[in-house]
């Protein structure tokens, strides 16, 4: 990459969630704590990589821990990027992520999201058409990439600087839409599970005996979490224009890894492909809905779910970098 040729570059957004990777699954499964200093390290690698490829401005969500701030301090005077923190009051909850995404979406060309499925779900509510690069730091993640941050930042730089166009290097993900009385109530990116938990509490799901129905946008036998229950029956790729619905009850038993190191035997009553835009009425009301693995919504009246192609635009880092390399992105 020729830094001299690209002095002025488009802005990149960074959203790093300080809360991910510490929930109850550390007790009920074999998940480990994802510490925040590792997140700082990830941001260091992102910033130095963006800088090496000529990015000169980054917009950041302030957070209660100061992940990016600490990364800036570590890099010190070698950092040449102009970094602006969004003027939001940090509350230490999902609202920080939502508000930061809302504020940055018209000012950045891509957003790097450091968090799990839950963090990305919030970003997806507000990012509009801005491409995102989701990096996994949570537990049971299906949506974000488990990958080296340096490579993620390279792909972002290639998109932002136009070596690979957004049309070439990104794709729209599916999403699940939840409707109550014909109003969109909430969304999920990977799965919605109907559970018989009586309260939201510690949010995570690990008691498979309380599960009743699951709807997924994508699933595979090589992913972990609730979607793996569907994935062990049939793989649904992210590029396929359908999802999967299954009901739990008397039927065929399957084994699924619903959390790290936690294999449960689950009896499947029935299942079917769910086409894009086809509505499915959830059968177990009242109940509690888990969105992307976290208990979120208490429901007491009819709820419909459908899968659409209106999820966030995600950078395909492999394709992006393949094209960028052919166009001289890595040449001095």
């Amino acid at each position: 990459m020729n830094e001299k040729k690209h002095k002025v570059c488009t802005t990149v957004g960074i959203i790093a969630n300080p809360e991910s990777g510490k929930d109850i699954r550390r007790l009920v499964s074999h998940a480990s704590v994802f510490d925040n200093m590792e997140k700082v390290n990830i941001v260091e690698r992102i910033l130095t990589t963006l800088q090496a490829f000529g990015i000169r401005k980054v917009l950041v969500m302030p957070d209660t821990f100061g992940i990016v701030l600490r990364a800036i301090n570590v890099i010190g005077k070698n950092l040449k990027i102009d970094i602006d923190f969004l003027p939001i009051e940090t509350l230490g909850n999902w609202k920080d992520t939502y508000e930061a995404t809302r504020q940055m979406k018209d000012k950045v060309s891509a957003i790097i999201v450091i968090g799990g499925d839950g963090t990305n779900r919030i970003v997806a509510k507000a990012c509009g058409d801005v491409p995102i690069m989701p990096l996994s730091t949570g537990t049971n993640n299906v949506f974000p990439y488990m990958m080296e941050a340096t490579i993620a930042a390279e792909a972002v730089a290639a998109i932002v600087m136009g070596f690979t166009s957004k049309e070439e290097g990104t794709y729209k993900r599916k999403r699940l839409e939840i409707f109550q009385e014909d109003k969109l109530k909430d969304i999920a990116l990977i799965d919605i599970a109907v559970t018989m938990h009586s309260y939201i509490g510690a949010k995570a799901i690990w008691r498979s005996e309380l599960l009743k129905e699951i709807v997924v946008t994508q699933c595979s036998p090589y992913n972990i979490g609730l979607s793996s229950i569907a994935g062990n029956i049939k793989e649904i790729r992210m590029d396929e224009n359908h999802g999967f619905y299954l009901e739990i009850g008397d039927g065929e038993m399957i084994k699924a890894a619903i959390a790290p190191g936690v294999l449960k035997e689950i009896s499947i009553k029935n299942f079917r492909i769910l086409n894009l835009d086809e509505k499915v009425k959830l059968r177990n009301i009242p109940s509690l809905l888990a969105l992307d693995g976290e208990r979120e919504l208490d429901i007491n009246s009819d709820v419909y779910v459908k899968i659409t192609r209106d999820g966030p635009k995600v950078i395909n880092y492999q394709k992006t970098l393949r094209i960028a390399a052919q166009r001289g992105f890595f040449k001095n």
């Binding site: 300080p18 510490k22 550390r26 480990s32 704590v33 510490d35 925040n36 200093m37 209660t64 821990f65």
Partner: peptide, 11 residues
């Protein structure tokens, strides 16, 4: 504390 959560000390 330099860490974000006392839970990080469990490790």
């Amino acid at each position: 504390q330099i860490i974000n959560s006392v839970a990080e000390r469990g490790k």
